[in-house]
Nucleic acid binder design. Structure first.
Lengths: 167, 167
DNA sequence: TGCAATTAGATTGTGCACAATCTAATTGCA
DNA sequence: TGCAATTAGATTGTGCACAATCTAATTGCA
């Protein structure tokens, strides 16, 4: 094979990014394992709870219920992923699922007290990890904003940085 | 609920990063779908091929065979993921698997001509995408190096940037 | 106002990830 | 030199992701 290294060119460069994303995402999941195992949930279930915790807090009005579609929109996941995941969470008593009264096609998801109860523990763990971590808040912020800029440019189905410029 | 927004604090910040990584990784996979479907492979299979193409080229000596373990080390995947994946690739004629003669515990993986044949098509597609993309090579490079720095700090099991500082 | 088109989830099937465990081959030391 | 410890993959089981399809509810227009 007398082909020089440049043969890889664009492939090699692009590969670095697609592989880096893939590896970093899995490494992040791995880093959360000790906490998740302790709480008895999975990483995607944790992400669902983060959204539910946030929305649970924000709602002032009684009818601000969360549909499977709204959750999927926020997490960019479809019903094929969420339906079974939410059923498992329901079995563990973390959420309740019920059909909306005014449109029976819609399934509403609500976090239970048990689900809310996991929040302080998660919060404490995350805060401790950030303190102990070699990664500075500035690095986290920079990486986060670059990832969202990248996501937006990938034309990702309505992807928009939930923290546009300042928080 | 009279809890103020700061309640989310570290949780919200950290959440942005872990979710951004998760979403960006899946968005990247999604962006590759048109090509992957055309080639009849999956995203992880594509990553395996990238490694095999690279190593296939580099080997000058006849015995530079790739073990499942070496592949797993490079991709940070274990045998539970790779074994079935490689079997599927073997069934499609993209790779050959055989036991090493000098250590029967080791399984060697080799890319076939059919597997090599996909490379030009992948290369062309990636080059075209990069040209058409709204993302500049500088952005790609910056994001890539930051992800690797982050990966290394996560203490990721021997994770090291394959392109340490310059390429 | 009835019926075609749309919409929201649920279901089905394939392919990862990964923890836990198993099996067979190999090492290395008593 | 025999046998306990180690090592490399393979296997098993659970839980995502997601494309494709299905079903039931709802809309909206002829």
């Amino acid at each position: 094979m007398a082909i020089c290294d440049d043969d890889n060119g664009a492939l090699a460069l692009n590969r670095q990014l697609c592989f880096a994303l893939y590896a970093a995402s899995r490494a992040m999941t791995r880093a959360y394992q000790p906490m998740l195992q302790h709480l008895g949930i999975t990483y995607p279930q944790y992400l669902v709870l983060l959204v539910l915790w946030e929305w649970d807090q924000q709602r002032e009005r009684e009818d601000a219920d969360v549909s499977v579609g709204a959750l999927g929109g926020r997490l960019m996941l479809d019903s094929g992923t969420l339906t079974p995941l939410l059923k498992r969470m329901e079995q563990r008593g973390l959420v309740v699922r019920r059909r909306a009264a005014r449109d029976e096609r819609v399934t509403l998801v609500e976090v239970t007290d048990a689900g809310r109860g996991l929040k302080p523990r998660a919060q404490e763990w995350v805060a401790r990890q950030l303190d102990a971590s070699a990664v500075s808040p500035q690095e986290v912020e920079q990486l986060r904003s670059q990832l969202w800029a990248f996501l937006a440019k990938l034309g990702g189905c309505g992807a928009s940085d939930p923290v546009p410029s300042a928080d």
